[in-house]
Amino acid sequence: MTDVLIRPAHPFDAAFAVPLIQATIGAIGLALTGASASVEAERAMLGFYPLRGNRLSFEHQLIVHAPTGEGLGLLLAYPGALAGALDDPFRERLRALGLPGHVESEGTPGELYVDTLAVTEAARGRGIGGRLLDAAADRAAALGLNRVGLLVEDGNPAARLYDRQGFRPAGTRRLAGGTYTHLVRDLT
């Protein structure tokens, strides 16, 4: 698909990006923010989005949109080695809410970790997810990383896309009450 533009995210993208992120990560978003409902998690995420130094910051995102400006999807990715530090603001939030400050960091050192890949429902099936994953590979290479990693929940239809993009299983993880397969795409 050639009629889309991929660009770095900006703080003003929050209204588009945050609901799409929460719709994609679901229970993980609730656990990360200490929220009991998605709308509450989105409110918390809106506060983090324009700030640097956290996993949900605009600084780790690419936005894909149509030439008309309509948002179609996003990629949220960061070096896995930074995952612990990027989760510290969420640990602090949880403790401030009187909750245990436990956040399971997802990224693995040596990889560009794709935290969230999300395409709007109306734009699915148009190759946008593949384009964003290719952009992730380019970003990983530019950072000197030799692989891209992500987690996929059992039964997620996006697993077919990840397989076509060359991702292979590298173990399993438990997060927010779910089991996820860690997939990696070697770039060497």
Rank of each mutant, 00 (worst) to 15 (best):
T2W: 01
D3P: 00
V4S: 06
I6G: 03
P8W: 02
P8V: 02
A9E: 02
A14S: 09
A15Q: 12
F16Y: 11
F16E: 12
V18R: 01
P19M: 11
P19T: 11
I21L: 13
I21A: 05
Q22G: 10
I25A: 13
I25K: 03
G26H: 14
I28N: 12
G29C: 09
L30K: 08
A31F: 00
T33C: 11
G34P: 11
G34H: 04
A35C: 04
A35R: 08
A35F: 07
A37R: 15
A37L: 11
E40A: 15
A41F: 07
M45F: 14
L46P: 01
L51H: 08
R55K: 01
L56F: 06
S57C: 02
F58Y: 13
L62V: 00
L62E: 04
A66E: 15
A66N: 05
A66Q: 14
P67Q: 12
P67L: 12
T68H: 10
T68K: 09
G69M: 10
G69V: 06
L72D: 09
G73F: 03
L74R: 10
L76H: 08
P79D: 04
P79M: 01
G80H: 00
A81H: 06
A85W: 01
L86S: 05
R91V: 15
E92Y: 03
R93T: 09
L94E: 01
R95N: 03
A96D: 11
G98M: 05
G101P: 08
S105G: 03
E106G: 03
G107Q: 03
T108V: 14
P109C: 10
G110T: 06
Y113M: 02
Y113S: 00
V114P: 07
D115Q: 15
T116H: 07
L117E: 02
A118L: 06
A118P: 14
A118S: 15
V119R: 08
T120P: 13
T120L: 13
E121C: 04
A123Y: 10
R124W: 05
R124C: 07
G125A: 09
R126A: 11
I128C: 11
I128L: 13
G129K: 06
R131E: 13
R131T: 07
L133A: 10
D134N: 13
D134K: 14
D134E: 15
A135D: 01
A136V: 06
A136N: 09
A136E: 01
A137N: 05
D138H: 13
D138A: 15
A141T: 14
A141R: 15
L145D: 01
L145P: 00
G149D: 09
L150I: 06
V152L: 10
V152I: 13
D154K: 07
A158C: 09
A159N: 06
A159E: 15
D163Y: 11
F167T: 02
R168Y: 04
P169M: 02
A170I: 03
G171S: 04
R173F: 05
R174D: 09
G177H: 05
G178P: 00
T181M: 12
H182F: 14
L183H: 08
R185Q: 05
R185D: 10
L187Y: 10
